[in-house]
Design a protein around this nucleic acid. Sequence first.
DNA 1: AATGAATGAGGATTCATTCAT
DNA 2: AATGAATGAATCCTCATTCAT
Lengths: 215, 215, 215, 215
Amino acid sequence: MPAVPAGRTRALRRAVSDEEKSQRREQILAAAKRVFARNGFQGTTIADVARAAGLSYGSIYWYFDSKEALFHALMEHQEAALRDHIADVLEATATDGEGFGPSAFREAVRATFEFFESDKAAVRLLFRDSYALGDRFERHLHGIYERFIDDLEAVLGEAQARGEIVEGPTRLLAFSVAALIAQLALRRLTTDDGLDAGVVADFVVSLTLDGLRPR
Amino acid sequence: MPAVPAGRTRALRRAVSDEEKSQRREQILAAAKRVFARNGFQGTTIADVARAAGLSYGSIYWYFDSKEALFHALMEHQEAALRDHIADVLEATATDGEGFGPSAFREAVRATFEFFESDKAAVRLLFRDSYALGDRFERHLHGIYERFIDDLEAVLGEAQARGEIVEGPTRLLAFSVAALIAQLALRRLTTDDGLDAGVVADFVVSLTLDGLRPR
Amino acid sequence: MPAVPAGRTRALRRAVSDEEKSQRREQILAAAKRVFARNGFQGTTIADVARAAGLSYGSIYWYFDSKEALFHALMEHQEAALRDHIADVLEATATDGEGFGPSAFREAVRATFEFFESDKAAVRLLFRDSYALGDRFERHLHGIYERFIDDLEAVLGEAQARGEIVEGPTRLLAFSVAALIAQLALRRLTTDDGLDAGVVADFVVSLTLDGLRPR
Amino acid sequence: MPAVPAGRTRALRRAVSDEEKSQRREQILAAAKRVFARNGFQGTTIADVARAAGLSYGSIYWYFDSKEALFHALMEHQEAALRDHIADVLEATATDGEGFGPSAFREAVRATFEFFESDKAAVRLLFRDSYALGDRFERHLHGIYERFIDDLEAVLGEAQARGEIVEGPTRLLAFSVAALIAQLALRRLTTDDGLDAGVVADFVVSLTLDGLRPR
DNA sequence: AATGAATGAGGATTCATTCAT
DNA sequence: AATGAATGAATCCTCATTCAT
């Protein structure tokens, strides 16, 4: 019991408290993700989030300043998770850095689909409900989207540099690929075409690389 | 008083009335389009629509059952306009029905971009605010989107039949092209990359037909 | 029924409507005065006002932008009534413009007490609840008070010019008299010292003119 | 372990505890005074007070039963300070108990202004925010005010007894002087008329003693 | 004693919709 | 047909207070 100086104890207690606080935030974010994904931003009340999180609605405001702030935090969370996942996959495949076909681009697309396949709620949040906030959120959402496109552009730019793909407007190209991925992932939420996520990913890569015209 | 039988008069009056009613509906829809496009569905009040239409807001309910019904009607209106435009263009180019390159597919994509270029409000309504209604609207929106894809699929199916493009899942293909068009048109609302709409249309066609890999 | 051109009818109807609207505002202001005077600004809910006015609380917002706007309007109303009353009395007594004792100053003070005696709610609103709004309202309240003091200052300035009262800082003097009146009127709300309002008014005048020291 | 009987220790501990408790109360009251004076009663949260006091806000409730109780205690504190100050001044000047002009009444008024000049926060608390509590607080405030007036009345009564001032309703007189002082002190918070506090005090005394009419 | 997380009553405000005129 | 006043459900957010630790 003693042995530990008072100051140390207090510091310890605070550390624990901080960790708990962080856990609560996670808990709320997880709950928010579920309900926002189901009902959209406008269709969700703070009370809904609180109920899903097992808290009273007043408590939400202990951890987040407003409903909007909660949504922002959630988006950031999702974005970070997505980019981390893609970075991990790219890093893992970087070592075999051979030709283009089996390399970075394909892997990036596949990783993205994988991520979305395993987290359908994230798809709705990032590509659907985000618009709900309108202009107030546009800058933030734009940022997220742009950073995703940045990553793709980097991959495509490298491929161009190696002559593996033709010259062209890389930004528009990256945006197009991002759009394809996002919309196809979104489509999978409501439409079942019996295709595996990997197949769809390959479809995107194949379409993008070789196009439709017979060679 | 009149020499016209009562029944006839009433019928006539109703006919006139119906026509006026139809005109009023158009007037309201036009106003609704402007304000919904500017402020989104949630951000627009019935009073906003009424003001823009030059009517009192109570009157809106004479022509539409609810705010949501108004939005649905507006969507249908937009859809019809889009499909008419595309059909017109395809019909016009159908006569010279030669090879694929300069033909139907290219024309369909170009026509779609043209349409959206000339009506930015339609872009926001169809591809952005629609989501705002969430599940309640999803089926309807889905229907619109699917019919758009139907048209594209028909065009692509024909091209496949003629051997102009490779075999593949035409539905997914059509969806992908639709997604590309929609997202690129949407992007043009907020991001200016200095590219002409025709150039972007050709970019989509070129990417879709020939892909990125050097031949 | 006919005989009146359509345009005229409409104009007439609108005029009636405007009048009714104005009546409703009066009705709400009267109700607001009662409840604000009883419970203070903070202690009154919009629902209280609505109930007292016999309306639903949503309706209040048809006539006033916010609770605060309602309070401001009420203050202005009270101020106008007070100044009108004083002006009326001064005008009525202006004709006999003789010496100072029975003249303007005495009449102004008496008129003010009369007004407050006949409208106790006004006293609370002007001198008590006004503070409730804090800094947001301070400027407005300050304005009201200052204009009241302006009027007193004018009266006192004139008396000084005629040599009826000694030289001195008129502004401070006017403020002092205003403060005396306000606080004594306020006191009458809670404390019954058995004195008639007229007696108190004369007390103020006498104190102010001759002071306490025996002559 | 100790040589001191348990009972004694406990008693000692409690005594120490009580003293500490008292200190804490002072600390909280001092902080409360600052924030209440700045933001008013309604505009101040318990959290604000706690932050200013360097405590967690839960702790406030260890020392005070409620926000309102805290405010009451604060008022009492202020009242005591004010009356002590006046009593001190009067006592100090009592010894030279000569004529009235330079004596008790003048000194009391001056002392009061001095007090308020040196503690602007007290002015706001006593004469402005007090009203914020409405009827719940009225009796208490009334009490404070009345005791202040009691003191003034005693001074004035004595002067009357000595024939230094004319006969009259001493209670009303005392109230009037108190009102003048309070409102003029309050005015000094927002309006700078370039006058020294002592000058204003003398103005009050002069007005009250000699009035405005030329002798 | 002290902390600060949790609670939930309370209230202003918005706005779709109804309805008397 | 048209108007616009009236209604009240719905919801965000604040903050005094409680309480487990």
